[in-house]
Design a binder for these strands. Structure first.
Length: 194
DNA sequence: CCCTGATTCGC
DNA sequence: GCGAATCAGG
């Protein structure tokens, strides 16, 4: 596989969307996440648009004894993206969640995770979910992947419904915080019923 | 162990 | 330019 214009464009788009290198690699196919990361760097778009908590990388290398003559003027003032350039008019149809108006009736089957009743969750855990819900990505059903927290929030019958969407705990359907409230020991749940 | 991005360096 | 191997960290 080679980096064709289309592939590079998809890479750029996904990277700017905050997708992980491995996800992008999976989407592209034929490349590993290393390839994606390598390309990202070569394209000079390592630091993503918004926030980049980056913990720096390798402070390695010998700070001293450097035969290097010039300090090498680091020129990287061009960080802002002029514009996402022109989009293919055809590929313009990314309606997130149309939500066919408010419908007081619940659509179809209920493959949704069990919504724990508030009165059988420990107060601490409850506070925890509330906390997480504030930082949740609030993704729609369509954005769910194998590694996004599938914790539902809100009423599916309303537009005020979304999924947590944070990174799941490997092997689990939920993020760390939601795994915590979803898998509570029987002991703590007993005696809590009203 | 699962994952993340960053860097190096032979190709 | 490319990306596997490796590193550093969550």
């Amino acid at each position: 596989m080679s980096w064709t214009d289309e592939r590079v464009e998809l890479l750029k788009r996904m990277w700017n969307e905050g997708q992980s290198a491995s996800q992008i690699a999976k989407e592209l196919g034929g490349v590993t996440r290393n390839a994606v990361i390598g390309k990202v760097h070569r394209l000079g778009l390592s630091n993503r648009v918004g926030a980049a908590p980056s913990k720096a990388a390798k402070p390695e290398a010998a700070p001293a004894a450097e035969p290097e003559p010039a300090p090498a003027p680091v020129q990287e003032t061009k960080v802002e993206t002029p514009e996402v350039a022109s989009e293919k008019p055809e590929a313009r149809a990314a309606a997130p969640a149309p939500t066919p108006a408010r419908k007081p009736i619940i659509p179809a089957g209920q493959p949704l995770p069990p919504q724990p009743s508030a009165n059988e969750i420990s107060p601490e855990a409850l506070a925890s979910v509330r906390e997480v819900e504030k930082s949740a990505r609030k993704i729609g059903l369509m954005e769910l992947t194998e590694r996004t927290c599938k914790w539902p929030v809100g009423d599916p019958a309303t537009e005020d419904f979304w999924f947590c969407g944070l990174a799941v705990q490997p092997g689990k359907p939920y993020c760390e915080a939601h795994v915590g409230v979803a898998f509570q020991p029987m002991s703590s749940r007993r005696d809590r019923r009203r």
